[in-house]
Design a binder for these strands. Structure first.
Lengths: 209, 209
DNA sequence: TAGATTGTTAATCGATTAACAATC
DNA sequence: TAGATTGTTAATCGATTAACAATC
């Protein structure tokens, strides 16, 4: 009775659906059809129904989906029905901006720890936390049992920091450093690099100014 | 004689190849095989060769690819053999961090303009530029002929700002606001939202702490 | 020359789309 | 009941992988 594995590309779309459903809920809507949701997302009705069907039937023929109920279900599926603590490594401009980012709290994410190597910033407050020394990072992460890290250190330091994070029990790394990290395969790494996105766009801009 | 269209998924991988090739070049290497490059990237040799073959034959049987030559060719293909000016809209924490980001200059990206609505920040310097009033945005963007924008305003303001950017002639938007933008189909939008990435990871973390 | 590795074609795999019976 | 829309199956489409002749 092998559990069917849900493709990662489906998982990656669920948070996006959730975001838009929350928007619709805020606008006072109660029900939405796959067709309407697709228009809002720039997706297709068939894909949304197919994606949701991996997890069960959440809609009603003839009327569509209860927005409130679907939000609840997606949150449950994605394990968002609780607060996740996250550690930020690197207290430069970007690390500080992320630590202070208002959009986290409302979506169940809490920055629990922030580390840097620079003695000048260690001990200073940033948003809800105080910058701590990378030297005590492993210990502190273990203490809090944190599983998710955001990495915002310079490229040269990134691999070394990633190794330390893995050693500390981190299982998911959101990497803002412009290098490809090497990690054990049970560690999920996602890479965010604005330069890569911009360069992709430049291809389509051709030789325009 | 229809020109074959290169799939977008291929285009999206080229900047990633380029990043790693630059790393290898900095390490003093001169030549790389598709096999070695694949290992470095966590990709496959066949895919790299297939991707490159859309644009021509850049390698030599028996020896592989000249790193220097391949970098040159990828830069040409992606239109990176020049400096692209970019406008940042929103001078909050994130907009300021991006405007000051050191990683842009070395990769041919220059922040040319930065806008905000807040009178308290208008006129203040951020990295290489001075914050200007969104009221003059359209005019200034046209003047400089900028085609690429980075959007870092709050969700409620994002669609309105996107509309203004499109009106100003912007053709590519890198959107950091947590909403799905609606734009004409000739405008390329890419969405960066750390929350969506983190939520995807949370699915795989299951019910771990 | 022998060995290595490309570029390309064909085979496979997986994801998206279309279609429709079930049903609210 | 009639109309609308789901959940699911089958058909299509496209991307990845494998294989190998060409050739440096």
């Amino acid at each position: 009775m092998a559990e069917e594995v849900v493709p990662d590309v489906v998982i990656s779309r669920l948070p996006w659906y959730l975001q838009t459903l929350n928007q619709l809920a805020r606008q006072g809507m109660h029900t939405v059809s796959s067709q309407m949701l697709a228009e809002r997302l720039g997706s297709t009705a068939a894909q949304i129904r197919k994606d949701l069907s991996y997890f069960g039937g959440f809609g009603k023929q003839g009327t569509g989906y209860s927005i409130y109920y679907l939000i609840e279900q997606l949150q449950r599926i994605l394990n968002l029905d609780r607060v996740w603590q996250v550690v930020v490594v690197g207290a430069g401009d970007l690390g500080r901006a992320l630590t202070r980012y208002q959009g986290f709290a409302s979506r169940g994410i809490e920055i629990g720890l922030l580390f840097d190597v620079d003695p000048k910033v260690i001990g200073t407050p940033v948003g809800p936390v105080i910058v701590e020394d990378v030297a005590v990072m492993e210990e502190k992460i273990r203490e809090k049992g944190i599983k998710i890290a955001i990495l915002t250190v310079p490229a040269q330091a990134a691999q070394e920091m990633a190794d330390q994070l893995v050693a500390a029990g981190i299982e998911s790394i959101l990497n803002y450093a412009p290098i490809t990290l090497i990690t054990p395969e049970n560690v999920h790494v996602q890479h965010i690099d604005p330069v890569l996105h911009l360069q992709r766009m430049m291809y389509y801009l051709g030789d325009k100014k």
